[in-house]
């Protein structure tokens, strides 16, 4: 157990918790405007695949990330259309988003590349600029630029939610949409914005998983990370700091199982080790106490013209 072991573990924790963290921030907006999002997984899959497609066809990973954002946004727009406009059932819509985009990406992957994984594409696994920083450069440069982007999004989100009029409205819509409407605020516009921001951020999280951690897309690569993001939001009490903490905790379990797999220290088969983050996620969720503070979460708020 040397210092370098802990540094490797720390870097690994940061790498693995980033997607849950970014997607979790997205879900924070979504749940705060009152829309339950079980489709985070599907939005991430969409983003991950679109990012690889973008990078594959242009050779520029940043265009890939942009495509990933669009991919997530498309999935988010679908969820918004069903839940905000059509007064649909959030849980079923989320489930449908996840299943649809798992299917669509696998279908497209098979149709375009002829297999369930894509070829290697230009990726964003390291940050070259930071390698010049004295002492820490070696470690800072070993992380994807999207990790830093995630940190930036967190800081911005904190200010947006707690310091801007928009953020205060977001908080109110999740609590009591009727009163908010009475105050002259367009509830549907607020709800749309929350779900779309969520789609965008989930797209970035997906792009990070396919271009930041790896350099390709393969079927089933998100594997429950979106669900863990949903848990991180609930456990993190819908606040950026809490979400960061929970994401790091879940990332820690993922990093530990990965290190155990690589080092093969104990004779546990790899499949059993891979269970660890999921079991940790369920344990974390079951430790949560207290009722939901968001009174309007998972409720329909219909426009008058759709009522009958």
């Amino acid at each position: 157990m040397t210092v370098s072991f802990f540094v490797v573990l720390l870097l690994s924790v940061i790498r693995l918790s980033t997607p849950m963290f970014i997607a979790g921030l997205g879900n924070m907006y979504c749940e705060r405007v009152g829309i339950l999002n079980l489709g985070a997984e599907g939005m991430m899959v969409s983003g991950a695949f679109a990012a690889v497609l973008g990078s594959y066809y242009t050779g520029n990973p940043w265009i890939g990330v942009f495509c990933g954002m669009v991919g997530g946004l498309v999935a988010g727009a679908l969820h918004a259309l069903i839940c905000v406009e059509f007064g649909g059932l959030h849980a079923i819509s989320g489930l449908g988003i996840t299943m649809l985009f798992n299917g669509v990406t696998k279908f497209l992957c098979l149709s375009i590349f002829g297999s369930t994984f894509t070829p290697n594409v230009a990726a964003l696994q390291t940050t070259k600029i930071l390698q010049g920083v004295p002492v820490l450069g070696k470690y800072l440069g070993a992380l994807s630029p999207l990790v830093y982007l995630g940190g930036l999004i967190a800081v911005i989100s904190y200010f947006v939610i707690f310091r801007t009029p928009y953020g205060l409205r977001v908080q109110m819509v999740g609590d009591d949409p009727r009163t908010v409407e009475t105050a002259g605020i367009n509830v549907w516009k607020m709800r749309y914005s929350g779900v779309l921001i969520c789609g965008l951020l989930c797209g970035i999280a997906g792009a990070y998983m396919s271009l930041g951690q790896l350099d390709r897309f393969f079927e089933g690569m998100i594997a429950g990370k979106g669900m863990l993001a949903v848990i991180a939001v609930k456990m993190g009490k819908w606040e950026p700091k809490g979400i960061l903490g929970t994401a790091l905790l879940l990332g820690f379990f993922d990093a530990v199982q990965l290190q155990l797999q690589i080092n093969g220290i104990i004779g546990i088969p790899p499949e059993m080790l891979q269970l660890l983050p999921y079991v940790a996620g369920i344990a974390v969720l079951s430790l949560q106490t207290g009722a939901t503070r968001l009174a309007a979460l998972d409720t329909q708020y219909l426009r008058n013209k759709y009522k009958f």
Partner: peptide, 24 residues
């Protein structure tokens, strides 16, 4: 690809989620 079944399945579930609108 026979994966189109998952696409049909997923879109069917989305339609079910939005069934209020169809009824409307």
């Amino acid at each position: 690809s026979d994966e189109i079944i998952s696409v049909i399945q997923g879109s069917l579930i989305l339609c079910i989620a939005a069934n209020y609108f169809v009824k409307y």
